[in-house]
Amino acid sequence: MLPAEQAQILGSVEAFLAKRLPPAEIRRRDAGHVPPYDLLPEMGELGLFALAVPVAEGGLGADWATVALVQEALGQHAYMAASIFNRVVGFGLASIRAHGTAAQRAEMLPLLMAGRAFCALALTEPQAGSDAAAIRTRATRQAGGWRINGRKTWISDAEGARWLILPARTGPEKEGARGISLFLVPTDAPGIAMTPLPKVGNNCMPSFDIGLQDVALPEEALLGQEGQGFGHLMSTLHYSRASMAATVTGAAEAALRIALDHARTREQFGQPIGRFQAVAHRLVDMRLRVDQSRLMVRHLAQLIDAGAPCRREAAQAKIIATETLRDVADAGMQIMASAGYSAESDMQRLWRDSRLYTFGEGANEVLRDTIAREMGLTARGRA
């Protein structure tokens, strides 16, 4: 049983989702590629974004365990709501709180907590994905600030964001982690061109190719210390990985529920298909995977709340949760057969959306290297 405060928060979340994102509305937005940006102010009014911010900084000061419960609930109901929540909490609030100046925090934290703005992380480039240190976008000093030139790609929710959190090279190095700095780039700055990218799923989280040509920024656009941007990015990765793990655990629970309901009601050979051992055991395995994922998410939340090192556990949680969703959604499609393959099925949306997460937020193969390094098996280096 949840403590009374957590139960109250989750009750508010569930009431909001039932009102604003009923099943028909989720399907409408998915079919029309309509992102959930209009929901942000209401989520802000509920205090959801303020949960992750200490009271001393104007927030509600909830622990990460509570944040993870909210993320799981959002992911179970509608991944689009969870995704935009994570955009604010993981990419925005975590970065600004950790590395922002007093002026940046004073300006941005109230806007982010109120749901009146959010940040998109503009990290990936055509030749730099899992190898984040391979970025080539460059920021050069000019009178009164900086000028940025380069290209970013597969930047989710960029068009709706107020700012891009954008790493660019400021040092003489042409590659590697050294000499990278972070910038807060207003998305309406002259010199920015965005092109939407068609993709298989996650229709309510549009992605963009972004060209930056002589984008002029003031000195105060620098986020954190010059030349320390790569380390700044690595310092908050556990929040974004924990966020994804909790969110996709909720989505996996939804896939299991849909498959289980179908197995109880779909009859073949005179009985519900869930009574056949092959189907029952598949559902049991799905239940095992989802519960294992949830336990890993809870364990990681405890470490975050304790301020303990958790690089390995964050990577583990992300791998376990995203592969759980991928496999559970695939098993659900097999159980439902053509009923799941129908465009009207919620299972097919979970199935196609799930394919992103094992390589989004860090490819799982790279994260396995991270875990190997944390175990002392390979040389230390990348995140």
Results as ranks from 00 to 15, higher is better:
residue 300 L to R: 02
residue 268 Q to W: 09
residue 345 S to V: 04
residue 334 Q to M: 14
residue 316 Q to G: 06
residue 310 C to H: 06
residue 301 A to P: 09
residue 279 V to L: 04
residue 290 V to K: 01
residue 264 R to Y: 04
residue 304 I to F: 10
residue 329 A to E: 04
residue 304 I to A: 08
residue 342 S to E: 13
residue 293 S to H: 07
residue 262 H to Q: 01
residue 320 I to R: 04
residue 339 A to C: 11
residue 341 Y to V: 06
residue 279 V to M: 00
residue 318 K to E: 09
residue 311 R to C: 11
residue 348 Q to T: 15
residue 324 T to P: 06
residue 358 T to I: 13
residue 265 T to Q: 15
residue 301 A to M: 08
residue 270 G to R: 03
residue 298 R to M: 10
residue 318 K to V: 08
residue 297 V to I: 05
residue 306 A to C: 06
residue 263 A to M: 01
residue 267 E to P: 05
residue 332 G to M: 00
residue 282 R to A: 15
residue 325 L to Q: 01
residue 318 K to L: 14
residue 295 L to S: 13
residue 302 Q to E: 15
residue 310 C to A: 14
residue 303 L to D: 02
residue 352 R to W: 12
residue 343 A to T: 13
residue 336 M to D: 05
residue 322 T to N: 12
residue 346 D to H: 13
residue 310 C to K: 00
residue 266 R to S: 15
residue 260 L to W: 10
residue 273 I to P: 00
residue 329 A to H: 03
residue 330 D to I: 02
residue 333 M to E: 03
residue 299 H to C: 10
residue 269 F to T: 03
residue 263 A to K: 00
residue 333 M to N: 00
residue 360 G to L: 14
residue 276 F to Q: 05
residue 305 D to W: 10
residue 344 E to N: 14
residue 274 G to F: 06
residue 355 R to M: 11
residue 344 E to Q: 15
residue 329 A to T: 12
residue 333 M to F: 09
residue 335 I to P: 03
residue 277 Q to G: 09
residue 324 T to I: 09
residue 354 S to V: 10
residue 265 T to E: 14
residue 310 C to V: 07
residue 358 T to D: 07
residue 342 S to W: 01
residue 357 Y to P: 07
residue 313 E to S: 06
residue 322 T to W: 05
residue 305 D to C: 11
residue 312 R to S: 14
residue 339 A to S: 08
residue 353 D to L: 03
residue 282 R to D: 11
